[in-house]
Simulated scan of single mutants.
Amino acid sequence: MDARFLRAVGAATAVYGLAVAARPEYLARPSGLTDGFGEVAQETATSLRPVGLRDAAIGTAMLLAPTGPALATATAARIASDFGDALLLGATLPPWRRAPAVAVSVGWGALSVIGLLRAPGGKTSGTPAPRRRRGH
């Protein structure tokens, strides 16, 4: 597990989540959840704010959790949320908005998966270190 990488993902997620909670249009507009004038209905904003708060909470947990099982659990919650978002958005958004929204959700989930699989310092777990030849 690359804790430093996961904490960076957590920090970015927390900041974005707080931004969406404060300004739901940051999520609504790219997702196509606006009216014909590009405005976000009050009902839509109300529905998106908890998503922002969820992301802020999980991102903060990733940022502050001790390295080990606690960080892995916070990261698993992040992955489940991102892949869950991808499934729901892919099933419900208008066709022209699906691919970008799903790609963003899967991308964020994939970053967390990478962080879990990487060894500290950026090497993927399970990858042997290069062998050094004597005398070189």
Results as ranks from 00 to 15, higher is better:
R23C: 03
D82F: 03
S112L: 01
G122T: 01
T92R: 15
T44P: 10
A45Y: 02
G17D: 08
L87S: 11
A22W: 12
A72D: 10
G84Q: 12
F37R: 15
V20E: 07
D55H: 12
R54K: 07
L111D: 02
P30G: 09
P100S: 00
T67I: 06
L27K: 13
T73G: 09
T44Q: 08
A12D: 13
D85W: 13
A72R: 11
A56W: 09
A12R: 09
A12V: 07
Y16L: 13
D35R: 00
A91M: 11
P94I: 10
R23W: 13
A99K: 13
A22V: 12
D35C: 00
S105I: 04
T46P: 01
A56L: 11
A86H: 07
G32Y: 08
A72Y: 04
P100T: 03
I114N: 02
L63R: 12
D55G: 14
L87I: 13
G122D: 01
F83M: 10
E25D: 15
Q42E: 14
K123Q: 07
L33N: 01
S112A: 13
A103L: 12
F83H: 10
A65F: 05
A70R: 14
S31T: 11
Q42C: 06
A45T: 03
L89V: 05
R97P: 04
A22P: 15
V104E: 13
T46S: 12
G17R: 14
G36W: 00
G90A: 10
L53Y: 07
I79M: 06
P30E: 10
G32Q: 12
T73N: 09
L87D: 08
G90Q: 09
I58H: 09
D85N: 15
L71Q: 11
A103K: 08
F37D: 15
A86K: 05
P120Y: 02
G38Q: 04
R97G: 01
V20H: 08
P30R: 15
A77Q: 09
T73Y: 10
G115I: 06
A91F: 04
G36Y: 01
L93F: 03
